[in-house]
């Protein structure tokens, strides 16, 4: 029965995962030695799971009925996971930033009313933004203010020098440590775009990328992002150039048919694959309802792709665990 379900799932996947108009066969996931963490909805709340790339060895790292644990991000040494924890419901919901060990033990509060975090490449800092309104909770990714850095060694929080930063989401830290990238919506006079922000300066600049959620490849030479709800682009990037991403370098890497969405692209530690969330029209933001969504992997060189999970339990926000773990 399990085999039948897997085959059915792959067939469905092949029919909707279209690259340049042609179907791609599934890839051999068992050849990928890395593991992933992701969020899944089970027993009435979101929890964080760990899983092998081929879909075996799934294990829940959190298991709390009335508390949502989401948006896991693994530290560069693979030993820690930063994540968001939501308590309460509706307008009184609260979202806080936590860290735990890779086995789910040792949960520790980092910052209250915080979200959209990412690690510095040396693992010494976590960048995050604060929730914008204290009057009522918002699920909107862009409903944020400021940019902050938590020092893992001292526990001190430093606000970025540019105090005008607002409405940032989907933070990423460049592998050279110099920039944080983010999507911004309706902040700093910008409509909806992607920017690079100097970590130790106050300047920010556009990446020349339309869409959302840019993610650096591990060597920092490329980024991938969601150009729309239903497609990923990949391009070379040079943060020292006035236009970091050139139009001529943009490649439509993957797109899905109408009625389905792809989000939360994350590069594998060796840069050969991306993991992502895929499913029928749903809510991609942290805590959003995304019934039928699964974690998938695509091979950069071939565009071939396959399911990692098949249960459709609102599986989102995959993050690779580096080999060091």
């Amino acid at each position: 029965m399990k085999n039948k379900y897997t085959i059915l799932a792959i067939l469905m996947f092949s029919s909707v995962m279209l690259t340049a108009g042609e179907n791609k066969p599934a890839i051999n996931l068992s050849a990928i030695k890395y593991r992933l963490v992701y969020e899944t909805f089970d027993n009435g709340s979101f929890d964080i799971c760990i899983i092998n790339a081929d879909g075996t060895g799934k294990k829940k790292l959190t298991n709390t009925k009335n508390v949502h644990e989401m948006h896991p991000k693994v530290s560069p040494d693979g030993k820690l996971i930063s994540y968001l924890q939501d308590t309460g419901e509706g307008r009184d919901r609260k979202r806080d930033l936590y860290v735990m060990n890779i086995d789910g033990s040792g949960k520790k509060l980092i910052s209250k009313d915080s979200r959209e975090q990412c690690w510095s490449p040396d693992g010494k800092f976590i960048a995050f933004v604060k929730s914008e309104s204290t009057r009522r909770f918002s699920l909107e990714s862009w409903s944020t203010k400021g940019l902050f850095f938590y020092n893992m060694e001292t526990g001190q929080v430093r606000e970025h020098a540019n105090k005008t930063l607002e409405h940032l989401y989907s933070l990423g830290w460049s592998p050279d440590g110099k920039y944080v990238t983010a999507t911004v919506l309706g902040g700093m006079g910008l409509k909806h775009t992607n920017i690079g922000i100097e970590v130790n300066g106050s300047r920010y600049f556009k990446l020349n990328v339309t869409g959302c959620r840019p993610e650096f490849s591990p060597d920092g030479s490329r980024i991938g992002w969601g150009r729309t709800d239903f497609e990923f682009n990949i391009a070379k990037i040079n943060m020292n150039r006035s236009v970091p991403v050139l139009d001529k370098d943009k490649i439509n890497f993957l797109h899905v048919t109408k009625g389905y969405e792809v989000y939360h692209l994350d590069w594998s530690p060796d840069g050969k694959y991306i993991a992502f969330s895929f499913g029928p029209d749903g809510e991609q933001h942290v805590g959003g309802t995304a019934k039928g969504w699964n974690i998938c992997i695509a091979e950069i060189a071939t565009g071939k792709s396959a399911y990692v999970t098949t249960d459709g339990n609102q599986n989102k926000e995959p993050d690779w665990i580096p080999a060091g773990e």
């Binding site: 914008e132 862009w142 919506l185 309706g186 006079g189």
Partner: peptide, 11 residues
């Protein structure tokens, strides 16, 4: 006035 996040492009 009611402390809701303002997404506007033209502030």
């Amino acid at each position: 006035q009611i402390e809701l996040p303002n997404p506007s492009h033209f502030k």
